[in-house]
């Protein structure tokens, strides 16, 4: 474990907590893409499938983190699609998720480290996570604005994988550890946030709201 990965995971936890708090406190999921949250839940379940297969006692923080990620993302989907369904902005959350899931699944079958079920699921989860934020970014571009709390969520969510890139550089240099699939997908994922990061740094940090050119 290195500092980049630690802060990456903390940033990821923060993102999940910020979103949950936003929905719970405002009792509304306006401006939140339910599809992105569904895709994240699928990512966690397919990536941590080992938790369900050979359940080992919660002997280390990694197992606990995996369970937190899965339960928090499923609970977030429950809040969006059931509890606060009336506030779900279905009209603007209109990116076709199939256009993300099918290519990720196809690519996972073509480019992977070994062709077995668990590895394919892990690879699918990595590819899907890289593009899972697109419905959320699409929704913001459709509505033309993002609530400040939602931009904090996006900043934490985008920073998590950006910090993981620093972690991979660190591990390449000190542990000669390279996981090419995760690195390539992580770079793509972080690039998708670039224009948002620019808006966040120039706008939100100055206390302004993010308003996209409609």
């Amino acid at each position: 474990m290195n500092i980049f990965r630690l802060f990456g995971d903390l940033s990821h936890l923060a993102a999940i907590a910020i979103l949950l708090l936003k929905i719970w406190k405002t009792r509304s999921c306006a401006g939140v893409s339910g599809k992105t949250q569904l895709l994240f839940a699928v990512c966690f379940i397919t990536r941590y499938i080992d938790l369900f297969l050979h359940f080992v006692s919660l002997y280390n923080t990694e197992k606990v983190m995996k369970l937190i990620y899965i339960s928090a993302s499923v609970f977030t989907c429950y809040l969006i699609f059931f509890k606060f369904k009336a506030t779900y902005d279905g009209n603007h959350d209109s990116m076709r998720a199939e256009f993300l899931i099918v290519p990720a699944a196809g690519l996972a079958c073509l480019i992977n480290t070994k062709f077995d079920a668990i590895e394919i699921l892990w690879t699918f989860s990595i590819y899907l996570e890289a593009v899972a934020i697109l419905p959320q970014l699409f929704l913001i571009s459709k509505t033309g604005e993002a609530e400040t709390i939602t931009s904090h969520y996006l900043f934490a969510q985008g920073s998590y994988r950006a910090l993981y890139i620093l972690n991979w550089i660190y591990r390449y240099h000190y542990e000669s550890h390279v996981d090419t699939i995760a690195i390539v997908a992580g770079v793509v994922q972080t690039i998708l946030y670039c224009d948002f990061f620019y808006l966040y740094i120039t706008k939100v940090v100055k206390g302004q709201k993010i308003v996209l050119p409609a």
Binding site: K66, W122, D179
Partner: peptide, 10 residues
């Protein structure tokens, strides 16, 4: 020689 261990990251 680069090692690809089992995916040991979240």
């Amino acid at each position: 020689q680069f090692t690809i261990k089992d995916h040991d990251e979240l």
